[in-house]
């Protein structure tokens, strides 16, 4: 009972709006795909990828647009992506866990762990794959910045004068010379 439930519950959790958006995403995919991608994914592939990503990252509000772009990019770099995702999903199903932490302590197979790491690192870094085929997808919305958004501002973005701290005391100073110059 518990086993079959992960994806079923996950699908239920996905709102109708989101599924609709997924459909729309699929519609516009041809426009977005670089260099005329031949193996265009089905809308349900992107939705499945989004649901899987939300499980892997433990987040509930990942961007549909980014999910689509990560999926396309990963598919470009890993032709066996669909199979790998299917294997990973099956393993999660089989383990019957409810959270990523439980899954990790349950002991995933090296292949599944590898797929999970690839997907999670894409979401966190905003970058897909390895050199020389690295591809940038997101910057300010990369999860590594979102994780600390309450305290830190994304580099090169500013939070305004009210966010500036006091100037630290200089470590050392020449006698009588202010370091302002």
């Amino acid at each position: 009972m518990k086993q079959q439930s992960l994806f079923a519950t996950a699908v239920c959790q996905v709102s109708r709006r989101r599924l609709l958006l997924g459909g729309l995403a699929f519609g516009s995919m041809g426009l977005l795909a670089p260099r005329g991608l031949t193996n265009t994914p089905k809308a349900s592939d992107v939705t499945d990828f989004l649901i899987l990503s939300e499980f892997l990252t433990g987040r509930k509000t990942l961007s549909v647009t980014l999910a689509r772009r990560y999926y396309l990019g990963l598919q470009d770099q890993f032709p066996d992506l669909a199979v790998r995702i299917a294997n990973l999903s099956r393993e999660i199903h089989a383990s019957g866990v409810q959270t990523m932490d439980d899954y990790l302590s349950h002991g995933p197979s090296p292949e599944a762990r590898n797929t999970a790491t690839t997907i999670v690192s894409a979401w966190y870094l905003g970058v897909i794959g390895q050199n020389p085929k690295k591809q940038m997808i997101a910057y300010s919305d990369a999860l590594m910045f979102q994780a600390v958004a309450g305290a830190l501002v994304v580099p090169s973005y500013g939070a305004g004068p009210l966010a500036w701290g006091n100037r630290p005391e200089p470590y050392m100073m020449l006698k009588g010379v202010s370091d302002e110059q």
């Binding site: 910057y139 300010s140 994304v154 973005y157 500013g158 939070a159 305004g160 966010a163």
Partner: peptide, 15 residues
């Protein structure tokens, strides 16, 4: 513009 008004135009603090 985005460095102050932020990436999605949402603004922050005094911006």
């Amino acid at each position: 513009c985005a460095s102050c008004h932020q990436a999605q135009g949402q603004g922050i603090n005094v911006y």
